[in-house]
Every structure is written in C-alpha cells, then in structure tokens.
Amino acid sequence: KRPMNAFMVWAQAARRKLADQYPHLHNAELSKTLGKLWRLLSESEKRPFVEEAERLRVQHKKDHPDYK
C-alpha cells in the first residue's frame, strides 16, 4: 500500500470533522468538499501535512525497499 500524500494526511482528520458537522452528506460530496477546502489552504497551512507525508514516504521506502 502506498504512503499517504499530503492531501490524504490532512483529509483523514478533516473528513471526520466534516462528516460530524454534515452527517447527511454522501461520501462523494464529502470528497468534493474536502478537495475544495484543501485548495483554499495556503502553502504555510499545508506545510505540516506535506512534511508528514514526506516522513511517511521516507519510512515506507525504508520499510519496503523493493516497493515500486
């Protein structure tokens, strides 16, 4: 399984919050909304998630050196 990218790291927590706020939204609508919200974030707001995704990528490479 591939490591999560920055969006997926962020969306993991954001999806729970959004689903709690809008329990009537279908998963497809949640995903579209999350995409729009992510694009509205500034680079500095995204930075911690980009850094975490990079950490996960490096760890994955270490754990699975033959993964392509």
Rank of each mutant, 00 (worst) to 15 (best):
V50P: 10
R55H: 09
D63I: 01
N5P: 02
K68S: 15
A53D: 08
E29C: 15
P23I: 08
E51Y: 04
A28Y: 11
K1W: 03
K46F: 03
L37Q: 15
R15H: 02
Q59G: 10
L25I: 09
A13F: 02
R15K: 11
T33L: 12
P23S: 15
K62C: 08
D63C: 08
Q21F: 11
F49I: 07
Q12F: 01
W38T: 06
Q12H: 01
P65V: 11
K61H: 10
A6L: 00
E29H: 11
V58L: 09
E43Y: 05
A11V: 08
L25E: 00
L41N: 05
H64P: 14
H60R: 08
L40W: 15
R39H: 06
N27G: 14
Y67K: 15
V50S: 08
Y67D: 15
K17G: 02
Y22C: 15
W38R: 05
A6G: 00
L25A: 03
F7P: 00
F49N: 14
S31V: 06
E43I: 10
L41S: 07
Q21A: 11
K46Q: 01
N27H: 12
K1L: 02
G35F: 03
G35D: 11
R16H: 06
A53W: 04
H60K: 09
R57A: 12
R15S: 01
K36L: 00
A11C: 05
W38Y: 01
P23N: 14
K61M: 08
E29Q: 10
G35E: 13
F7I: 14
M4L: 08
A28W: 14
E54H: 02
F49S: 13
D66A: 03
V50D: 05
A28R: 09
R2W: 03
K62Y: 09
D63H: 13
S42G: 11
K36H: 04
S44C: 04
K61R: 10
L56K: 12
E54C: 08
W10A: 03
Q21P: 01
E45V: 15
N27R: 11
E45L: 15
Q59T: 13
A28S: 11
L56R: 09
R47S: 07
R2Q: 01
H64R: 11
L37P: 00
R55Y: 03
A13R: 07
R57L: 10
V58E: 11
L34P: 00
W10I: 06
K46G: 06
A13Y: 01
P3M: 07
A19G: 05
V58K: 13
R15G: 04
E29N: 12
L41R: 08
M8T: 08
H64F: 11
K61T: 08
H64V: 14
A19C: 06
E54M: 05
D63E: 10
A53C: 03
L34N: 00
L30S: 03
A13T: 14
K62E: 08
R55K: 12
D66H: 06
R55G: 10
K61C: 05
N5Y: 07
P23F: 09
A19T: 08
L56S: 14
S31M: 04
S31N: 11
D63P: 07
A13V: 09
R47M: 08
L18N: 00
L18C: 02
P65S: 09
Q59W: 06
L18I: 06
K68E: 14
Y67Q: 14
S44Y: 02
T33A: 12
L40Y: 13
A14I: 02
D63A: 06
K17Q: 09
D20T: 09
E45T: 14
H24G: 09
F49A: 13
S44H: 07
E43M: 13
D20P: 01
V58N: 13
V9P: 00
R39S: 09
S44V: 06
Y22D: 03
N27V: 13
R16P: 12
S42C: 04
L34S: 00
A19S: 07
N5H: 09
K46A: 03
L34M: 05
S42E: 01
R55W: 03
P3L: 04
Y22H: 04
H64Q: 14
S42Q: 06
A14H: 11
H26D: 15
L34H: 00
R55N: 07
E51K: 08
Q59S: 08
Q59I: 05
L40V: 08
L56I: 10
Q59C: 07
V50H: 05
K68H: 12
L56N: 11
K68N: 08
K36S: 04
P65G: 10
V58P: 09
R55S: 13
E43K: 15
L41V: 09
M4A: 08
L56M: 11
L37E: 09
F7Y: 05
A14E: 15
P3R: 13
T33D: 01
Q59D: 07
L37D: 05
E45I: 15
L25F: 05
M8I: 11
G35S: 09
W38E: 00
Q59K: 08
Q21E: 05
Y67V: 10
Q21Y: 07
S44M: 05
Q21M: 08
K46P: 06
V9T: 09
T33I: 12
E45Y: 06
K62R: 09
P23M: 13
V9Q: 14
M4S: 04
W38A: 03
R57N: 11
L41Y: 15
H64A: 11
A19P: 02
K62L: 08
Y22R: 13
R2G: 02
Y22W: 15
S42L: 01
Q12L: 01
A13N: 12
H24C: 04
P23H: 15
M8G: 11
D20F: 05
N27W: 14
D66W: 07
L56E: 13
D66C: 06
H60C: 07
E51H: 04
G35Q: 06
L18H: 02
V50W: 03
H26A: 13
L25N: 04
H26E: 13
S31E: 14
A28G: 09
S31K: 05
K46S: 04
S31C: 08
W38D: 01
R2P: 04
M8L: 11
L41T: 03
R16Y: 01
L56G: 13
D20R: 08
K62D: 14
N5Q: 01
L41I: 12
L30E: 01
R39T: 07
R39V: 02
N5T: 10
M8F: 14
K46E: 02
N27Y: 12
L41W: 06
E45M: 15
A28L: 12
R16A: 10
E29I: 15
A13Q: 15
F7L: 14
P23K: 15
P23C: 09
A53I: 06
L40C: 10
S42H: 10
L30Y: 04
K36C: 01
K36I: 00
E45R: 11
E51P: 07
E54I: 05
A28M: 09
K61W: 07
F7C: 02
E51L: 02
A11F: 03
L41C: 04
L18V: 10
F7E: 01
A14F: 06
E51M: 04
Q12N: 04
P65N: 12
